[in-house]
Design a protein around this nucleic acid. Structure first.
Length: 470
DNA sequence: CTATGGCACGGATT
DNA sequence: AATCCGTGCCATAG
């Protein structure tokens, strides 16, 4: 069984509802921004100094003790899962900070993609270039592509398009190589260029990327070979090289399980919103689930502000009251957000425990609606809570929270394994047959879909064992 | 003829 | 109401 410290209803009084909804759909980074902007505009809101647990150096609530160190920990084997979250009286809902906690090795490396890239170049840029770089990097989509056009940026910053192009070229060479490109083709070309300094690149690779990318993705190798006046083998070599060493979506490799080839720079680009891990990283210890609260210190309504309202002139009283009202609403809503997330995670981790502990094969089919029913909240609440959030699992992978609702993940994993250990290339129908032994009954067509989702080539293009990278 | 991808339909999910 | 997902049918490549 699990330990629920504080039971609270998920639903809020009507005034809170709208804001709770909004906050719920924010991930920790977005919430941080929101809070910062509130702090700078609302004088009634106050951020008090952080308290740290003397034992484990974790950030603590305004009152109370460290939820982890005060756990009975090791002896308590009856409680396989421990949930850590905000105490009830804890207005500011400070949970635990993964961010800005240098004592935790993995946490200190958590940096957003724009920040990560900016750090690499900032030192060698002039001040106004730095601002420009920051602007560019803040306009990346989730794949790491630049979403703004050069002309717009130029107009907005009153800079020459050529300057901007030059800067972009530099950014492209930063660690997720190809980041800030306009499209996959550009990204691939940059990666090729950088790679060519240290690795031998198969002939025709560059030409294929430049001219025949669409054909390549359709695996029309023969056609490409004809157009280039070379052999299919050479084209296939180049194709293998591309798929093994290059990544058309610079930011993606660091999300899921698509391993990044050259520089396995761990998953550091997104901060998780939730951490799941074994206490002290010892697999025998209970699981700890932390909901990250991105605010350093404790957020609350400034008591001084509140008490001095009596001494204020008539006209301003209204303003002040309004500020206090807004501040306390925000604080309450943030607390409610944590609470909702915690309740959600409790259910989620219990239901998908096998997945959390042993991997993707164990993922159970689960819908948001089921969870909503179990928690007695509206489905849209779950949707909001899930969207845009990410979780760090005990194996240190960072995955989107929505992965807990991926109905086909376990099937896809089985297929992946099956193909990885196949003696001879299995056709989709054969895979379909084999899958029945696992109790999986899906159509042949669906096998094909899953296979391509995993980026696995069809049987006739998959000779023997793929080349191992590096 | 077999294997696979494209399109689109219907039902479930959000 | 909009979107996603599994699947059947059909065209195409080998």
């Amino acid at each position: 069984m699990l330990q629920t410290h504080y039971q609270q209803p998920l639903t809020a009084p009507s005034a809170h509802l709208a804001q709770t909804m909004t906050l719920l759909s924010l991930n920790s980074g977005e919430l941080l921004q929101k809070v910062e902007s509130e702090l700078s505009t609302n004088p009634a809101l106050e951020l008090v100094e952080e308290r740290r647990c003397p034992m484990c150096k974790r950030l603590l609530p305004a009152t109370g003790t460290c939820p982890i160190c005060s756990q009975p920990s090791t002896q308590d084997s009856d409680e396989p899962i421990v949930f850590v979250s905000a105490p009830e009286d804890f207005y500011s809902s400070r949970v635990l900070s993964a961010e800005e906690t240098p004592e935790e090795p993995f946490a200190s490396e958590m940096v957003s993609l724009p920040e990560y890239v900016l750090r690499q170049v900032a030192a060698e840029l002039k001040v106004d270039d730095r601002a420009l770089a920051a602007y560019l990097l803040s306009h990346l989509d989730e794949d790491g592509f630049l979403t703004a056009t050069i002309l717009d940026v130029a107009r907005y910053h009153h800079r020459l398009p050529d300057d901007i192009k030059e800067l972009i070229e530099r950014l492209k060479r930063c660690d997720p190589i190809g980041v800030c490109s306009a499209n996959p083709k550009e990204a691939l070309l940059v990666q090729l260029e950088v790679l060519s300094e240290s690795v031998e690149i198969p002939p025709f690779t560059r030409e294929i990327v430049t001219e025949y990318l669409p054909k390549l993705s359709q695996h029309h190798y023969a056609e490409i070979a004809r157009a280039l006046g070379t052999t299919i083998i050479k084209v296939q070599n180049a194709a293998t090289f591309i798929s093994e060493n290059l990544n058309p979506f610079p930011a993606r490799a660091h999300w899921g399980d698509l391993r990044s080839p050259a520089a396995p720079a761990v998953n550091v680009y997104h901060r998780p919103d939730i951490l799941i891990y074994h206490l002290n990283d010892n697999p025998n210890n209970p699981l700890v689930v932390e909901i990250i609260h991105p605010i350093r210190g404790t957020l609350r309504v400034n008591p001084l502000f509140k008490s001095s309202i009596k001494e204020v002139e008539g006209k301003k009283v209204e303003e002040w009251k309004e500020d206090i009202e807004k501040a306390s609403l925000l604080v309450k809503c943030i607390q409610q957000r944590s609470n909702a997330l915690r309740l959600l995670l409790e259910k989620l981790v219990v239901m998908q425990k096998d997945y959390v502990l042993s991997g993707e094969k164990e993922m159970q089919p689960l819908t948001r609606a089921e969870i909503a029913a179990a928690l007695d909240v509206h489905e849209s609440t779950i949707s909001r809570a899930v969207s845009g959030k990410s979780v760090q699992l005990p194996n240190k992978r960072i995955v989107p929270l929505s992965i807990f609702f991926d109905r086909s993940l376990s099937q896809r994993t089985i297929i992946k394994e099956m193909i990885a250990s196949e003696k001879r290339p299995l056709s989709d129908s054969e895979i379909q047959e084999n899958l029945k032994a696992y109790g999986v009954n899906i159509a042949r067509r669906t096998v094909a879909k899953y296979r391509s989702m995993e980026g696995i080539l069809p049987a006739h293009l998959r000779h023997n064992h793929p080349v191992v990278a590096g």
